[in-house]
Write a protein that binds this DNA or RNA. Structure first.
Length: 671
DNA sequence: TACAAGTAAGTTTTT
DNA sequence: CTTACTTGTA
């Protein structure tokens, strides 16, 4: 190490090597954090309450490992989003410089993707496989559903969405499909036999066309590691120090992946909070984190209970919400942050009054000097913010929305990418169908036949041109498509390839969407800009499937405001984040929890979700709900506060009834 | 036979 | 608002 470092001032005798460390760990971490950061070999479980410095602990441990001489490339940091991994490595970089960039980091899915591309051959995985996102999966399921004759029979057969749901859930819970139907979808029991047959064809179809869905990425990596010893050893030797964030939201397959990857060394640090487990719909079970010590005997457990984020008033609400849970959790948060502010339960007249309250308070906060990017509005379901979005637009308050619909899933973006996907993987029948059906005169029937001839040929463009001869009036269009594909194969830069597709696709799009094609064009330009940084088509397509750009900036706003954006987010997408001021809207029974939360387990998870929402706030927390809300079945009904707030004492969460603001006309130009 | 248009129903959360 | 299935047209 080139830099001479000043020795620690503290009298306590640090381990000898600590003297040379640039970071003074003992001075900036609390005892529990320090214990976790100093841990070096063997399994470690950190139970970290909300705001207890969990991320900080991970970052400092990365830094300390590297300072202790561990090569960065031997560290694997698995997080819930890649963004989280990048952010952590960036912060670690502030501590120890750019050595942190050598750390391998990402999500389980992105890690599995890379591993399978490079080492998947022993279990029959082609390196150019295509990743199916959820809607691609549904497309395939739907195709098979029709092909197998389940579409137009008298008996009602489940829709593609439900089918994809069951199939995926079974895998995420590591259950046989039959058992999954019995357990979570008993109403589909009568179709169990057909669903099983459909699922089998789905597996065969994916295999035949080099397609892997999200679940395959995890399951097949587990398969690879189980069955192929050289690969297991290779990966386990490469990543000698593993760190896993948000462990409470992992499922059994992910736990198995961890076990297999760590087989050679058991150097695993898992970090999580059982009270913040909110992904059971993805097969996660908060008990997994409790069973970590059983998976790795000899696990050291460290608890972080001091909260550095929120003032006590906010923690009081969160603690009371979670204390009424049926399962008891492992810790109670406390803070030394004093502050007079009490969170407020705001009862609004109706949804629009709620929106205007939020908008107005946001403007007041801005007057008080709180930047917009220090404020967030959270909600249970992404459509809950629709009315608020209109109100914010009306008042020129810039915002970004996280979670919910992604622009990557809109038809025009999928169309565009499908043209590139067939170039990367000519066997990708889903994408072939998609781009063929865009052509006038080609419907599902003809498209399927064309796919059959094209998929197995060595030169798809030529095969397509040959097949087009028999296609009647669609011939010339198919010829153009063939030309396009040839042109795409000749180009190497993704952004350039997108430009080539745009040239072909934009006219088709204008015809297909005469109402709003300008907006869609802007989306595609945005996409082109995003893809400018990619050098390989494969990596670009993989990123689009695994880490899609989902911050859809409100399309009204063309320019970046200096003061940043107000954040609108689902609670799920707000996980791990924090803001100075948080609004939680639609905290009403019937919305949060929603009507689909029926079982006690579902409700417990909703309660944890409420806990997550509340603990995102540092200084101010406003929870609101409308007194009258519209119900599709019953018209306007009286709204009640969420049941999770009922047990919270009024001293801890006082209620304010919202008076109509006088300066504002009731009927704005919204709607 | 194959495609396009029209009508009717269902809707969380995410990799 | 999207998706599914029926009916209408070439």
């Amino acid at each position: 190490m080139a830099d001479q470092v000043i020795a620690l001032k503290r009298d306590s005798s640090p381990p000898p090597d600590e003297r040379n460390f640039r970071v003074k760990y003992a001075e900036v971490l609390n005892p529990a954090q320090l214990e976790a950061v100093r841990h070096r070999e063997g399994p470690l479980l950190v139970i970290a309450g909300a705001g207890s410095g969990k991320t900080r602990t991970l970052i400092y441990r990365v830094a300390r490992l590297i300072e202790s001489g561990v090569p960065p490339a031997a560290i694997l940091l698995l997080t819930f989003t890649r963004r989280a991994a990048q952010e952590m490595l960036r912060r670690a970089g502030h501590l120890i410089g750019d050595r942190s960039q050598g750390v391998a980091g990402g999500t389980f899915h992105s890690f599995a993707h890379l591993a399978l591309r490079r080492f998947g051959a022993p279990i029959g995985i082609q390196p150019n496989f295509t990743i199916l996102d959820r809607s691609d999966m549904e497309d395939v399921v739907n195709l098979l559903r029709t092909r197998m004759g389940f579409a137009s029979r008298e008996q009602r057969f489940p829709k593609k969405r439900a089918l994809a749901e069951v199939v995926s859930m079974a895998r995420n819970k590591s259950r046989a499909l039959e058992a999954e139907i019995e357990a979570d979808f008993p109403h589909l029991r009568e179709h169990a036999g057909d669903i099983l047959r459909l699922a089998a064809s789905y597996e065969a179809y994916k295999h035949e066309h080099a397609l892997l869905d999200y679940d395959d990425l995890l399951c097949r990596l587990a398969e690879l590691l189980r069955t192929d010893q050289p690969t297991r050893h290779r990966l386990s030797d490469t990543y000698r120090y593993m760190m896993i964030d948000e462990y409470q939201d992992t499922n059994l397959i992910q736990a198995e992946l961890v076990r297999l990857l760590a087989a050679a060394h058991h150097n695993v640090m898992a970090v999580g909070d059982d009270a913040q487990s909110i992904y059971s719909f993805r097969g996660a079970n908060f008990r997994n984190i409790m069973e970590f010590p059983a998976l790795f005997p000899g696990t050291k457990v460290v608890k972080l209970e001091e909260n550095y984020r929120s003032i006590q008033g906010i923690l009081d609400v969160a603690n009371e919400v979670i204390s009424l849970a049926r399962e008891k959790y492992t810790k109670v948060l406390f803070t030394r942050r004093e502050g007079g502010f009490r969170p407020l339960l705001v009862r609004a007249q109706d949804e629009h009054t709620q929106s205007r309250f939020v908008a107005q308070r946001v403007l007041e906060l801005r007057e008080e000097g709180v930047a917009l990017d220090e404020i967030a509005v959270l909600f249970r379901s992404s459509f809950h913010s629709f009315d608020l979005e209109l109100e914010l637009q009306r008042r020129d308050i810039p915002f970004i929305k996280r979670g919910g619909f992604k622009f990557i899933e809109t038809a025009h973006v999928k169309d565009l990418l499908a043209h590139l996907r067939v170039v990367a993987n000519p066997a990708d029948a889903v994408s072939w169908l998609r781009i063929l059906m865009l052509i006038r005169g080609v419907g599902s029937r003809r498209a399927e036949r064309l796919v059959e001839t094209v998929v197995d040929s060595a030169d798809p463009a030529t095969a397509l041109a040959a097949a087009a001869k028999a296609a009647g009036k669609a011939e010339s269009e198919l010829g153009r498509l063939s030309g396009l594909l040839a042109e795409l194969r000749a180009s190497a830069r993704p952004a350039e390839q997108i430009a080539i597709v745009l040239n072909y696709y934009l006219p088709l799009m204008r015809e297909a969407y005469p109402d709003d094609y300008p907006k869609r064009e802007r989306d595609l330009e945005h996409l082109q800009a995003i893809t400018e940084r990619y050098r390989s088509l494969e990596s670009m397509l993989a990123d689009m499937a695994l880490e899609p750009p989902n911050d859809s900036i409100g399309d009204v706003l063309a320019i970046d405001p200096d003061e940043g954006y107000l954040t609108l987010s689902t609670i799920h997408s707000a996980k791990g984040l924090e803001w100075k001021v948080v609004f939680l809207i639609w905290a009403a029974d019937g919305r949060f929890p929603g009507p689909q939360s029926a079982s006690p387990e579902d409700l417990e998870e909703e309660r944890r979700l409420m806990y997550v929402a509340g603990t995102r706030a540092r200084d101010e927390l406003y929870i609101s709900y409308p007194m009258y809300m519209f119900d599709r079945a019953m018209g306007y009904v009286m709204g009640r506060a969420s049941r999770f707030l009922e047990g919270v004492r009024p001293e801890v969460l006082p209620t304010a009834v919202l008076e109509e603001a006088a300066e504002e006309p009731l009927d704005g130009e919204g709607k």
